[in-house]
């Protein structure tokens, strides 16, 4: 396996590096995407799909955010952020030219290289599509190395569908199966209505030779794992991305502990059979 990209300045993992905002896009009412570029003289930013950064808003605070851009483009660092707390709300107001602090990349990655040769099923819920997008970019860029590619996505309503134009673009490819569902819709919606787990039976993948990658709220992942198991996909073929409180991202602060795992360092992407026992222990 290729070693994962790690933070550039290993001597001081706690210091953010300034990145300039090149472009901002409002994706949804509460979700936006920023393209960041390292300040002049800084090295390009390499990462593996599934890894995250700590993003720092000057004087306000720092939050862990997955990287949502293309791993093949180290000149542009892309983050998709949901404005839900003080820090992310402050970030939502930032314009092109403003500067954000970046520490990273941190954590484990989606096993995009290890699963070459098999079918790949990606199941995302809500803003959980963002951490999976780099994996999609990687797989599409190396499409011949994979079997069937199935992208299943669930959102609350049609207005909450993230990266809609891209989903439509991927959907129009002959070598990719994309299915989107919402919890409820009105007459203008011609797509699926129902939970995302309902889509799993329609992907046409080979359960014995499928790698599944799931990203969304824990409850959504729990039901999705169940549905994949029902289809015959075993837990060692399922990867999930976990979310926990994080302050340091390097295993010092202790906040992200999940049983014996540090989500920041051992995760956020876990092979499900390795955390299976803990996953159902409540409040762990």
């Amino acid at each position: 396996m290729t070693p994962l990209p790690a933070i550039a300045d290993a001597a001081e993992p706690m210091v953010p590096i300034p990145f300039r905002i090149e472009r901002t896009v409002k994706n949804l009412s509460d979700t936006f995407t920023v393209d960041l570029r390292p300040e002049e003289g800084r090295k390009p930013f390499h990462f593996a799909p599934g890894q995250f950064n700590m993003l720092y808003q000057f004087g306000v605070g720092e939050v862990p955010i997955s990287i949502s851009g293309d791993p093949q483009d180290p000149e542009t660092l892309v983050h998709t952020i949901r404005a839900v707390g003080a820090v992310t709300q402050a970030m939502a107001g930032m314009k092109r030219g403003a500067v954000m602090g970046v520490r990273g990349p941190f954590g484990s990655a989606w096993p995009v290289e290890a699963v070459e040769g098999s079918d790949v099923v990606l199941v995302a819920g809500g803003v959980g599509l963002a951490p999976l997008r780099p994996a999609i970019y990687h797989i599409l860029a190396n499409r011949a190395r994979y079997g069937r590619l199935v992208i299943l996505y669930g959102a609350r309503t049609p207005r909450d569908i993230l990266f809609r134009a891209e989903l439509e673009k991927w959907s129009s490819r002959l070598d990719t199966f994309v299915d989107v569902t919402v919890d409820r819709a009105s007459g203008g919606w011609h797509g699926n209505v129902g939970v995302v787990t309902k889509l799993i039976g329609r992907g046409g993948f080979d359960p014995d030779n499928t790698a599944a990658m799931i990203c969304g709220p824990e409850t959504m992942m729990r039901f999705t794992i169940q549905a994949l198991n029902d289809r015959g996909v075993s837990n060692e073929r399922i990867h999930v991305s976990m979310e926990r409180n994080m302050k340091c991202a390097v295993g010092f602060c202790g906040h992200c502990q999940f049983g014996g795992q540090f989500v920041c360092r051992d995760g956020p992407v876990f092979r499900f059979d390795r955390i299976e026992e803990m996953f159902l222990v409540r409040e762990l």
């Binding site: 669930g154 939970v195 709220p217």
Partner: peptide, 12 residues
Amino acid sequence: AARRQLIDLYGH
């Protein structure tokens, strides 16, 4: 499935 649709499975 209907009950899961009620709980905002994809948000928080």
